[in-house]
């Protein structure tokens, strides 16, 4: 029944070709070079939008995956953290003239506090009720933001002055934004890689796979869940701030929408939950597709991209439950000539 006994305990020191947990591979290095190439190359402005959004959503998908993939905390409410992060840095900039370079940290921190609060609210909930609570939580935040007009601008939203300047983190060139988003993606990726090779990362796997066993091994499950959700929310909040700096406009009905929450969960699910490369691949596949559909059909078919997304997700879930990363791993084990 068991394949072969002798699995070597000594790890080979060479760099693996395909991604492995906790180690850097050629695949990732080449992908990074391709990303840098895409930023440097002179390409049409509309395509640049697609590229930098793929970076941003890749980072956001990775952030979601820390809670959803590693700790098993499936959230359909991450748009709340995205919105909180975006609103915090933007309010600090617009109302108090504080540079987003500082505001982003506040955005991340407050989003992290929201994340911890959500984890504690849902301390006793598992499965579907946990998921629905995240959804309800985000809706409460959205309606709150809509009604607290003095702070958020309510339904009219909040705009950032489109005057370029380093201090206000507003740039004239899309290439600069592309660097910014790529930087975000790389940072979140590095955090994810460090996490999955760390003791804390293992604690999260344990809590996800069997909470009773984790607890019997001395792991505090509630603390692990809370920290994982806080970290995931904080990184999502930073992504929200960057989004605000790029679009220069925030409005609760988009930035805290259930659709956006769904998108954050969809990208890792398609790419491969609980892997570092999965969410990135998911974003690189889905984000361009969605932008393409949006630009092709425009507003004449509102919701069409979500129709296609959701159909795709059903197919992926039923037939490739381990996503693109799983397919990649299968490819790595494929030995056509042996």
């Amino acid at each position: 029944m068991l394949v072969t006994g002798a699995v070597s305990t000594k790890k080979p020191m060479r760099v693996p070709i395909l991604p492995e947990r906790g180690r850097l591979s050629w695949f990732e290095l080449v992908l990074l070079l391709v990303c840098i190439g895409l930023v440097v190359a002179s390409i049409p402005s509309s395509l640049r939008d697609v590229i930098l959004l793929s970076f941003l959503f890749g980072g956001l998908a990775l952030a979601w995956n820390i809670a959803g993939g590693y700790a098993g905390l499936i959230s359909f409410g991450h748009a709340a953290f995205f919105g909180v992060g975006g609103y915090t840095s933007t309010i600090l900039l617009v109302h108090y003239d504080i540079t987003p370079w500082i505001g982003i940290w506040f955005g991340g921190t407050i989003a992290g506090v929201f994340g911890a609060a959500l984890a504690l609210i849902c301390a006793r909930l598992r499965g579907p009720f946990f998921i629905l609570s995240t959804l309800a939580f985000a809706e409460v935040v959205r309606i709150g933001a809509l009604n607290w007009s003095s702070l958020t601008g309510g339904p009219e939203g909040l705009s950032i002055m489109p005057t370029p300047g380093l201090a206000s983190m507003v740039f004239a060139s899309k290439a600069t934004y592309a660097w910014l988003m790529l930087g975000y993606l790389v940072v979140v990726y590095a955090i994810t890689k460090a996490l999955e090779a760390s003791r804390f990362g293992y604690y999260l796997f344990a809590i996800r796979d069997n909470e009773d066993a984790a607890s019997a091994a001395g792991v505090n499950p509630l603390l692990g869940r809370t920290l994982a959700m806080a970290l995931s929310a904080a990184l999502t909040g930073v992504g929200g701030s960057l989004f605000a700096q790029y679009f220069l406009y925030l409005d609760p009905t988009y930035v805290i929408s259930p659709e956006l929450s769904f998108q954050f969960a969809l990208l890792p699910a398609v790419g491969g939950l609980g892997t570092a490369i999965g969410p990135v691949l998911g974003s690189f596949l889905i984000t361009p597709l969605s932008e393409l559909l949006r630009s092709y059909f425009g507003n004449s078919a509102a919701g069409l991209h979500l129709v296609i997304y959701s159909l795709g997700l059903v197919v992926v879930m039923l037939y490739f439950p381990s996503g693109l990363a799983g397919a990649l791993a299968k490819l790595a084990r494929w030995r056509p000539f042996s």
Partner: peptide, 8 residues
């Protein structure tokens, strides 16, 4: 899958 069905 059912969440996707709902969005669909």
């Amino acid at each position: 899958a059912t969440m996707a069905l709902s969005i669909f």
